[in-house]
């Protein structure tokens, strides 16, 4: 039976859905239930990972250190995962303390063409005996050949695996199949997929990834994640079971986990809203959703226009500051047109 490693970033990606306001009680409750269900990896933190609490993206209610300590003390079977993007988090200030607290798995992220920025962070995690994965964000923005070249760099830095992140939920199943065929054929390490559901494709894309040889999938309870959310964990486990994949996760317990998550962790269950659809079509990272909602009101511009214009500018993950500039530009152009009339 083919095995798929499931990693659960509900308490990391889901933090985007509540503007990084997850509290310690919620983190503890979810960790206990995930541990009980046998989730292999539970990822915890600010939505953009270590040291990403900022005015740019939203400040965290709970500091990184405390989130990790609470999670650590409530996980026994499950491994504790952290996410770090070089350019946000540093080894000395952020990664070393996270490993000290007890992170077992380190995901090091970069934009899909910038893998060489992850070399030092991946090496550090490996040198400290941790599992180290390289995550390529916004993977719809690069061709399969480019992605392979970038993944090979991460492989050469000692990564235990690489994960393609469809951060904008922009890919369709055929795009995923094409990418995974190239990567699985060209790499010696396992390849994984992290879906977003902007176009309703999160489960279908995740399945396309494993059907083309992918061996790691990310899923979040009720899909709790940025924008339209991620691949819904409990659906993913069920579909993988139907297809004959082994995850070592207890079905009933992961279904219970999802109920616990809905009741205790999330204010609202993610759904595919119009702005998320447009974000997926425009290829703009899902984490922009709440900022676009707020800024489009302040500058009285249509949030859909804002997403399409951001897509034309080819903004990448972490560039939330550009939203204000583009909104002002749209408002200015609109005012110029109405004055001309």
């Amino acid at each position: 039976m083919k095995h798929v490693l499931i990693s659960d970033p509900t308490l990391r990606d889901g933090n985007h859905a509540v503007m990084h306001q997850l509290n310690s009680t919620q983190i503890a409750a979810y960790c206990r239930a995930a541990d009980e269900a046998g989730l292999p990896i539970v990822e915890v933190g600010h939505g953009n990972g270590l040291a990403a609490a900022s005015l740019q993206l939203g400040l965290s209610l709970v500091p990184d250190k405390e989130m990790l300590e609470v999670a650590r003390s409530n996980l026994s079977r499950s491994q504790l995962g952290v996410f770090i993007i070089p350019g946000f988090g540093t080894i000395k200030r952020d990664l070393a303390p996270a490993i000290e607290i007890g992170a077992d798995v380190v995901r090091v992220g970069s934009h899909c063409t910038e893998a060489d920025t992850t070399a030092r962070h991946l090496a550090y995690a490996r040198e400290h005996g941790k599992k180290a994965y390289g995550n390529l964000m916004m993977c719809h923005m690069a061709s399969p050949a480019t992605l392979l070249a970038e993944c090979r760099k991460m492989q050469s830095y000692g990564a235990d695996g690489v994960v393609l992140m469809d951060s904008a939920g922009a890919l369709l199943p055929a795009d995923v199949t094409e990418r995974f065929k190239v990567l699985v054929g060209g790499l010696e390490i396992p390849v994984g997929f992290h879906a977003h559901n902007n176009l309703g494709m999160a489960i279908a894309n995740s399945i396309a990834a494993v059907e083309a040889g992918g061996r790691i999938l990310d899923g979040t309870a009720r899909g709790f994640g940025a924008g339209a959310g991620n691949a819904q964990l409990e659906v993913l486990i069920a579909v993988l079971q139907q297809l004959g994949y082994e995850t070592n996760i207890d079905l009933y317990k992961v279904l219970d986990l999802s109920d616990i998550a809905e009741k205790q962790v999330m204010k609202t269950v993610p759904i595919v809203r119009p702005t998320s659809i447009v974000s997926g079509m425009a290829g703009v990272v899902s984490t922009f959703a709440k900022h676009v909602d707020r800024i489009s009101v302040q500058y009285a511009v249509d949030p859909r226009d804002l997403f399409f214009e951001l897509g034309r500018r080819k903004v990448v993950a972490g560039q939330e500051d550009i939203i204000i500039e583009v909104a002002m530009d749209l408002a200015h152009r609109r005012d110029a047109v109405s004055q001309a009339r």
């Binding site: 040291a51 080819k314 903004v315």
Partner: peptide, 16 residues
């Protein structure tokens, strides 16, 4: 706090 983002867009973006 300082954050640095690399953006590969073509044509290349100017520093902001």
């Amino acid at each position: 706090k300082t954050i640095l983002i690399l953006n590969p867009a073509q044509p290349p973006i100017h520093m902001q």
